[in-house]
Simulated assay, not measured.
Amino acid sequence: MSNPATVIAAGGVVWRESHGSRQVLLVHRPRYDDWSLPKGKLAPREHVLVAARREIEEETSQQVVLGPPLGVQRYDVRKNGGTVPKLVLYWAASLAGPEQEFEPNDEVDKLEWLPVGKAKERLSYPRDVDILNCLDAVLPVESTVVILRHAEAVKRKEWSGKDTVRPLSDEGLASAERLSGVLAALGVNRIRSSDAERCAGTVTPYAASIGRRIHLHPEISEQGYEKDPSALEKVAAKAWKPGKVTLICSHRPVLPALAEALGLPVGKYATSAFMVAHRLADGRVIRERFGAP
């Protein structure tokens, strides 16, 4: 007999600073009469970062951006008369704007902002306290960098024009659209890209959605890197900007050197794969890798 499919869910710890104290947002679920952290199951083919943001916003009415990861919960739940494993991933989540008026619904009927210590006492499940205990260790974030390999392009052998203008394939265009939601969940607000069309085209849907221009850098194109491998250090030196979430889109041959210049681990990236790196005020860097959405 095959193992039952794992239920995948995502959520976050929504936090704010108020009167010199860090507060977190808890939700009350009338169905269970419990206090918990906002979370919910992924929709089919939904990226886990998109799901975390969506579930937080649906349950709390607050618009958020995701920060560093806080951990994973594993436990069993009842489903279809049996028991299946459940996996829940959590991120720190900060308000993306002014606090919004809460609209009670069937899933959540009450919210409450509480200081961290009181929130630990209010939470109904020790596993949620364990997640909350991780919050202070990942804050404050000074700056964030997302490095991304471009989406799938038309194959070289099928393209007769200049390589710099080789466009995304149909699958690449679809992936670029999906990436837009992921980048929104991370709150990307600075966009840097190779000047090659396949890189610029990958980040264009997101740039258009937030009304930001794409800063093109020949230094991180394949041709630019071959000509002068050290030139990308200029891009890397300006990437860690305090208070900003900077996206850098480049190519497979360039990304290892770019990662090294940023002080990040060197690795291989499939098309549309990316790394998110958060630099904390104490100098530590928290990072996580994701495949294509």
Score class of each variant (00 low, 15 high):
S2T: 08
A5I: 00
A5N: 01
T6A: 12
G11Q: 11
G11L: 09
G11D: 12
V13I: 12
V13C: 10
W15G: 11
E17W: 09
H19C: 11
P30Q: 08
Y32T: 15
L37F: 04
K39P: 00
G40F: 00
K41P: 02
P44W: 00
H47R: 01
V48C: 03
L49Q: 02
V50A: 12
A51F: 00
R53V: 05
E58L: 14
E59I: 03
E59L: 14
E59T: 06
V64C: 03
V65H: 13
L66C: 03
G67W: 00
P69Y: 03
G71Q: 00
G71H: 02
Q73F: 00
R74V: 01
V77R: 04
R78C: 01
K79F: 08
G81D: 00
K86R: 15
L87E: 13
Y90P: 02
S94Q: 07
L95S: 00
E99V: 06
Q100H: 10
E107T: 12
E107H: 08
D109M: 03
L114T: 02
L114M: 07
G117W: 01
K120T: 06
Y125L: 11
R127D: 09
N133V: 00
N133Q: 02
C134L: 01
D136L: 01
A137F: 05
E142R: 14
T144V: 11
V146E: 01
V146N: 02
I147S: 14
I147D: 07
I147Q: 06
R149I: 14
R149F: 08
E152V: 13
E152K: 14
A153K: 13
V154D: 08
V154C: 09
R156M: 12
W159L: 08
W159S: 13
K162D: 14
R166C: 09
S169G: 09
D170N: 11
E171T: 11
G172I: 03
G172L: 10
A174I: 03
A176K: 14
R178I: 03
V188K: 02
N189G: 13
R192Y: 10
R192K: 07
S193A: 15
D195P: 01
A196C: 07
E197M: 14
C199K: 09
C199V: 01
A200L: 11
A200Q: 12
T204I: 06
A208K: 14
S209K: 08
I210R: 12
G211A: 06
R212A: 15
I214V: 15
H215L: 09
H215T: 04
L216P: 00
S221F: 03
Q223V: 14
K227Y: 06
K227Q: 11
P229H: 07
L232K: 10
V235W: 03
A236H: 11
W240I: 10
W240D: 08
K241H: 06
P242M: 02
P242T: 12
V245W: 05
T246M: 13
H251I: 12
P253F: 08
P253D: 08
P256K: 14
A257F: 13
A257W: 08
A257E: 15
A259V: 04
L262I: 05
P265S: 13
V266A: 11
G267T: 15
S272K: 03
D282S: 10
I286C: 02
R287Y: 04
F290G: 02
P293R: 10
